[in-house]
C-alpha cells in the first residue's frame, strides 16, 4: 500500500450552517504538481485550511504521509494568499524568508547571521537574491509571492500547499515559480496549488482536482481536465449539450 503525502477522507467544513466543503475525499499522488480548481466559493481555500487545521473540521479525517498533521508539521510548507498579510509590516524580504527557518532554529534562540545567509540562498532560488534587504512593501506583487515561495522552500518540506500562488503575478514570476515547482517535483515532492486560471492548468500542472463543494473529479490532467468535468464543476451547460439549458 502506498503512503500518500496527503489523504483526505470524508472531509466536511461548515461555516455557520452552510457546508463550504461536503464529504470530500482525495488521495493525492505521491509526487508532482496538483491543481485544485473550482468556481469562487467552491471551498478550495477551505480545503487547504481544514487540512492545515486552520478551520475546524465538521467531519472527516486528514493524514499527511499516513499520520495526523500534528506529527508531520516539519514535512509541510504552507503558502497563504498574498493578500492575507499586511505588507507594510516592518520586515525585509530576508526576514520573511528566515521565518521558514524558525522551527529548525528552535525556541528562545535568536536568528543568526548564518540563518540570514541561508535565507539569502532561498531568495536566490526565486531570483530575488539582490532584494534581501528590501522592505517587503517595496516589492511588486509578483516579488512578494516569490518571497512567500522562498519562505516555503526554506522549510525543506515534502508537501507544499499553496493558496492561489499565481493570482495577479507577472510573467517573470510565473516563469520562476513554474521552474521551482518542476524542480520540487523532480526532487520527489508534491506541490498542491489552489488555482483559479483554467487556461494555464494544462501547461503547469500534471494532476487536477475539480471541486465544487464536493469532489467532482480528480486525476491526471490529460484524462480528468475534460470539458465535461469542467462544465460539471462550474455548472455551465456546454454548447455540446443544447438540450439541457
Amino acid at each position: 500500500m502506498t503512503i500518500h503525502p496527503l489523504s483526505v477522507k470524508n472531509l466536511t467544513v461548515r461555516y455557520g450552517g452552510r457546508a463550504a466543503l461536503d464529504n470530500f475525499s482525495w488521495d493525492a499522488p505521491e509526487r508532482g504538481l496538483a491543481a485544485i480548481v473550482g468556481p469562487n466559493g467552491a471551498g478550495k481555500s477551505s480545503l487547504l485550511k481544514a487540512v492545515l487545521g486552520l478551520v475546524p473540521k465538521a467531519a472527516g479525517r486528514v493524514e499527511i504521509f499516513g499520520k495526523p498533521i500534528s506529527e508531520q508539521r516539519d514535512l509541510i510548507a504552507y503558502v497563504p494568499q498574498r493578500a492575507s498579510v499586511d505588507w507594510d509590516f516592518p520586515a525585509t524580504a530576508g526576514d520573511v524568508v528566515a521565518m521558514g527557518l524558525y522551527r529548525r532554529i528552535g525556541w528562545l534562540r535568536p536568528v543568526r547571521a548564518a540563518d540570514h545567509a541561508a535565507a539569502r540562498k532561498y531568495l536566490d532560488m526565486v531570483r530575488l537574491g539582490d532584494f534581501a534587504d528590501r522592505q517587503i512593501g517595496a516589492l511588486s506583487g509578483g516579488q512578494q509571492q516569490r518571497v512567500f515561495l522562498a519562505r516555503a522552500l526554506a522549510q525543506q518540506a515534502k508537501l507544499f500547499l499553496l493558496d492561489e500562488p499565481f493570482a495577479g503575478v507577472d510573467a517573470v514570476t510565473e516563469g520562476v515559480m513554474t521552474g521551482v515547482f518542476r524542480e520540487l517535483r523532480n526532487a520527489g515532492s508534491l506541490v498542491v496549488c489552489v488555482h483559479h486560471d483554467l487556461s494555464s492548468v494544462q501547461e503547469i500542472f500534471d494532476h487536477v482536482v475539480l471541486l465544487h463543494r464536493e469532489m467532482i473529479a480528480s486525476g491526471p490532467v490529460g484524462t480528468t481536465f475534460t470539458p465535461e468535468n469542467i462544465s460539471r464543476t462550474y455548472g455551465v451547460p456546454l454548447a455540446l449539450n443544447p438540450g439541457n439549458g
Binding site: K49, L52, G53, L54, S70, R73, I76, Y78, P80, S84, V85, D86, F89, A91, D95, V96, M99, Y102, R103, I105, W107, L108, P110, V111, Q155
Partner: peptide
C-alpha cells in the same frame, strides 16, 4: 527578547504560524 521571533511571526502571519504548529 526570548520570544522575539515567535512574536514577530504571529504578528506578521498568524495563519502561517498556526499551520506550522506554533
Amino acid at each position: 527578547a526570548l520570544l522575539f521571533k515567535e512574536l514577530t511571526l504571529i504578528s506578521f502571519d498568524a495563519d502561517y504560524a498556526r499551520a506550522h504548529g506554533f
